[in-house]
Design a protein around this nucleic acid. Structure first.
Lengths: 235, 235
DNA sequence: GAGTGGTCTAGACCACGCG
DNA sequence: GCGTGGTCTAGACCACTCA
């Protein structure tokens, strides 16, 4: 039964009944609405909180998770400085190189579950830490959901790109899968990251999903790993 | 209170009261032992199961997690074939190149929380898939806990190395942290993996911990990523 | 059919945040 | 002081496993 309740809450999240950052009704209210006991609602919320879809705060309520919060900002970025920690390093400087409407090549279309040739937004940018260009990213977004996204918008928005997606397009990224390889950059890539052509780089291909396992973003990035590393916790 | 119960159960796990793969007492029994209700024990076990320290099986009981089980075998190995899946590929073929007693260099000692010069076991091996050498691993283990480990032992044991550690040395790896970089191999490394010297490889440095966050293994591996990739799920 | 974990309930009290 | 989530309890019943 709590799985059903979970489904109902999920449905409300998907349909924007409660927006990212907002409180959802109290456990008692939801229990009344769904005609179950508080404990059942609690278990449903527990699992949604474990999946990072909701955030509980004692004394205040349960909130729809958002990429805009300080604590969980850059949740999907696993690149860490070799010395010090990510907080003191602060957010990256962003340089948008390009942001254009185009048509999905086969590969991209398949990943985003579109048809080949469907409209997509394609963006390329560089993230720098302490002035050193460290990440080169190519981003593909389904054109339909992100109609009107411009380079200016990507440049202007302070904070995580995923937070901007929530605010301006109502698209919340919920989870992602990454495939990581070591590759040698081509000349253009090497020039953009200011490294010699032979330098090994981390290739990180990320497919990010919104609710219901719908893929909404494909991101292909190259990470310099001379002063940073990709950090992963296994358990 | 359930945190205290969790601590007590953890203590029993650490001290080997229940060994990997065994059942622990039922929730009712533990509730009686600790003088709390079943629900409190349940919550403690829930969290331990979420941390992969315990495994629940409905109708049978709660078991101490182990690396020997089919389902969770190679839990810490995130390298996946680009096509097909890891199960059909089967386990890797192992070639032990070396396994010797030595003294911990500064770096290794710091990672394993030993003193420089303390005895360590050092092993080097190659893992191959479909006959292709794909992983070159250097493993460092504290000499005290792994006294007597030999190359033969590493070669003979069928199944995950971590399962062998549990069985023969009573050391259970509970979680791990990995730092990933892209590097170019030196000549020796390149020869062992049968790749040209310039080939970018994934460098994966893993520190594996047993109970209580005690580091028990440092592993430095190079992964070929021409037919495989490192897979990571973010949420 | 006995024993295990899994779920649901209802009620009580606690800890926290905030007006 | 009220409302929120957090915890603990006790009892009931269900689903699964295995002798």
């Amino acid at each position: 039964m709590y799985q059903q309740i979970k489904g109902l809450i999920l449905h409300s999240l998907q349909h924007g009944e409660w927006k990212p950052g907002e409180v959802i009704p109290s456990e008692m209210d939801l229990a009344a609405r769904f005609r179950v006991s508080q404990g059942t609602v609690r278990k449903a919320i527990d699992e949604l909180a474990a999946d990072n879809l909701l955030m509980r705060r004692q004394g205040k309520g349960t909130f729809v998770a958002t990429h805009a919060e300080r604590q969980v900002q850059y949740r999907f970025l696993k690149l860490m400085p070799d010395v010090g920690d990510a907080r003191e390093e602060g957010p990256a400087q962003r340089t948008i190189l390009e942001c254009k409407r185009s048509r999905a090549p086969v590969e991209i279309a398949r990943a985003l579950q579109l048809r080949t040739g469907d409209p997509v937004i394609q963006a390329r940018r560089i993230l720098s830490f302490a002035g050193v260009p460290t990440i080169l990213e190519d981003i593909w977004l389904p054109g339909q959901a992100f109609k009107g996204l411009t380079a200016e918008q990507m440049a202007e928005y302070q904070g995580p790109t995923y937070a901007m997606f929530e605010l301006d397009y109502g698209v919340r990224m919920v989870r992602a899968e990454e495939k990581i390889r070591a590759i040698a950059p081509d000349e253009e890539q090497a020039n953009l990251l200011l490294v010699p052509v032979g330098t090994p780089l981390l290739s990180v291909e990320r497919l990010a999903y919104t609710y219901n396992d719908v893929p909404m973003e494909l991101r292909r990035a190259l990470y310099r790993t001379d002063t940073h590393h990709y950090h992963n916790s296994l358990s």
